[in-house]
Design a protein around this nucleic acid. Structure first.
Lengths: 213, 213
DNA sequence: CTGGATCCTGCCCGATACTG
DNA sequence: CAGTATCGGGCAGGATCCAG
């Protein structure tokens, strides 16, 4: 730890020493959605080598960012309060990076946890507060999410459920959120397919989840 | 770029592909203070190998984060507007990391640019707005900074100048900003030495620059 | 002298096999 | 299922060298 060290004393450097290594912040991203088992983390990060996942978990545990918690026969990993304080960092990174997202390449996948954090990034509570409570069932690739907006609060859960609007989308959903693609055009081009519910609710979705340019 | 790829399509992953590699965000940190020449960047990051610095500059230039700008015979590097949008990310990282800063190790240094960004991180504009305009001349290790607070705006420049309060501090200045160390105790223990001006202005400094727990 | 490019060494990462 | 062990390759680290 002492050799491969940035050698500076300030907050940014310290942060990078703790979570600056490869894969670390993606593990944090998934744990911000909820506690996860080792296998769940591995499934959400298909390209991570298992030794790297194990190493990162150990390092971040030693740093007080996450903890191994035994839960009725199985072990789960969960963020400590200090680890949860990384949420603004992850949201800021997500907001910045999403502006540089082009079209997805063939091998790029969208995982449920990544999609959940993207929605949290794009969520505009002050806009949502003015709108009626709405539940959306969104299927993005293989990810099924139940998105409940109630006033200024957002809840995203995996799986299906009762929803005012159910739709299925490809990665083009990002262009909808970025405002690059208008809701009705998204439906017209087939990038978003409405499965149940009034299709004009997609406009409400787009104004609730929006990343400013 | 295609092999060492995270393989996911979302904002956070994209951000990490652009600025997630070693040293990248420290270069951004320094460029957020102002345009810098190659040698200035190298001086502010003493441990970076020159090939890595050159490589990062090229990569981030290709990504549209910074640009090489010829300025009267010399080349300077400056952030593009998109690169400047990383400021919230860097500030969030700095705020988070500074909470984990222990005592500095022997070899850890404080550079002027790092200190400038630390001050920006800790600056509380709403508090400063209630206080009279104040100029501080702060010497932290080898870094000499002129810190001007005028209402809700902050300006940090290198070098000396007219100031209401001039003080010299070690790395313990971070404990002052974190609230761990009261201003009068910082003076009493010698962690901060007031060179010119009324010493109770250090209290104003500490309430202007403060990181919430 | 500044702004890099080049070389070599070593370690981290990536991939996979293997084990409690 | 939850990791550990092992090995090869590639990026990082450090010194040196080159061009304008």
């Amino acid at each position: 730890m002492a050799v491969r060290d940035y050698g500076q004393y300030d907050g940014i450097t310290q942060a990078l020493e703790l979570v600056g290594e490869r894969w670390a912040l993606l593990i944090i991203r998934d744990l911000l959605v909820g506690p996860r088992r080792y296998g769940e983390l591995a499934a959400g990060l298909p390209r991570i080598p298992s030794n790297i996942l194990a190493a990162r978990l150990k390092e971040m545990q030693a740093a007080g960012i996450l903890r191994r918690a035994p839960r009725s026969r199985v072990v789960i990993y969960e963020l400590t309060p200090y680890g949860r304080e990384l949420e603004p960092v992850v949201l800021a990174l997500g907001a910045w990076g999403s502006k540089a997202l082009g079209d997805p390449r063939e091998e790029q996948i969208i995982t449920p946890d990544a999609m959940t954090m993207s929605l949290r990034t794009a969520f505009r509570p002050h806009v949502a507060a003015e709108l009626p409570a709405t539940a959306y069932a969104a299927r993005v690739g293989p990810a099924e999410l139940l998105v409940r907006v109630d006033g200024p609060t957002l809840d995203v859960a995996r799986g299906d459920g009762p929803a005012d609007l159910a739709f299925s989308a490809g990665p083009g959903i990002h262009r909808l959120i970025s405002g690059e693609l208008a809701p009705d055009r998204a439906i017209a081009t087939g990038e978003v397919e409405v499965l149940r519910g009034p299709r004009d609710l997609l406009g409400r979705f787009a104004s609730t989840f929006h990343l400013a340019a």
